[in-house]
Design a protein around this nucleic acid. Structure first.
Lengths: 156, 156
DNA sequence: CTACTTGCAAACACTTTGCAGTTGC
DNA sequence: GCAACTGCAAAGTGTTTGCAAGTAG
């Protein structure tokens, strides 16, 4: 399915590109750049990091995959096949669930009128705890909210 | 206003922290780390990059400022005073308008039921063209969508 | 065959850390 | 005065670029 889209864009179908796409489509989870590289190599492909970067960029452009931003800004990738593309991300285990029915249309229109913007796209991510992590302690934090602040002192 | 919050957390009010906060609160736009540094220095403060990083992290923690993630993942900062914090971002000039009335409550609840997640937070950003940029050509792209793809060739 | 693609090495950009000197309270 | 804070330099991390060699079509 990606193959046609590549060809249609005038791009060549190389083993490396196929491997990157396969890695992402074959994963339940979102993958980071290093993980894509590792997966592709585990599948027996000879491929370099540079190519992974370039290929991911291309595949996003062709809308075969999609970026997921975690809260700390790190970029990961998932297959775009699963629909219109919003994400629900577990703040503990980082599991990603994709959903599509955001029903934001009316709201977006009202913002457009108020702000005089022409709105082209939107991006919605929900954060929470998945069933398995709901009762786990700990926040898998971006850094320091873990630390308690002793009375009158900084803890930072 | 930030001063009390700093003190309340047990943190010291230094010139540098005041300068970072002033830079962000004094700006209509969101600022990147370098820009915060430049602004603070322009205002006559002696301050280093390291301190800017540390201070931004602290101010986010104290909820005096907020991160904005642009699509390319770069992190910028705005004052948190402007409300609940969703952003409408001009895809050409990067102007940011903040809005708060996202009315996502019912939708979020339905996702929570369906997915068995406990949803703690959400993050919505809208992208479009502001009034001034609406008729401008060009996309201010993340890289390469600017390039036209000549028939049958890659352009990439 | 030829232009597109790859992958290494090196450059680059961004962020964090160690630590001696400085400063708010 | 003392712990908190700063800022430099250096290390660490993630991403991009130049370019010679490889390969899809």
């Amino acid at each position: 399915m990606g193959r046609e889209r590549l060809r249609a864009g005038g791009f060549r179908l190389t083993r490396q590109r196929a491997a990157v796409l396969a890695a992402i489509e074959g994963s339940e989870e979102h993958l980071g750049v290093r993980e894509v590289l590792a997966t592709a190599r585990r599948n027996g492909r000879r491929i370099g990091l540079t190519t992974v970067y370039r290929t991911l960029e291309l595949l996003v452009h062709l809308q075969l995959i999609r970026k997921v931003h975690l809260r700390d800004g790190c970029q990961r990738y998932v297959s775009a096949r699963a629909g219109h593309g919003h994400h629900l991300i577990c703040s503990r285990c980082d599991r990603v669930v994709e959903f599509s029915d955001c029903r934001l249309g009316a709201f977006i229109q009202s913002v457009a009128e108020r702000t005089q913007f022409t709105i082209e796209d939107h991006w919605l991510e929900l954060f929470g705890r998945c069933k398995g992590c709901r009762n786990s302690r700990g926040r898998r934090p971006s850094g320091f909210e873990e630390k308690d602040i002793p009375p009158g002192r900084a803890g930072f």
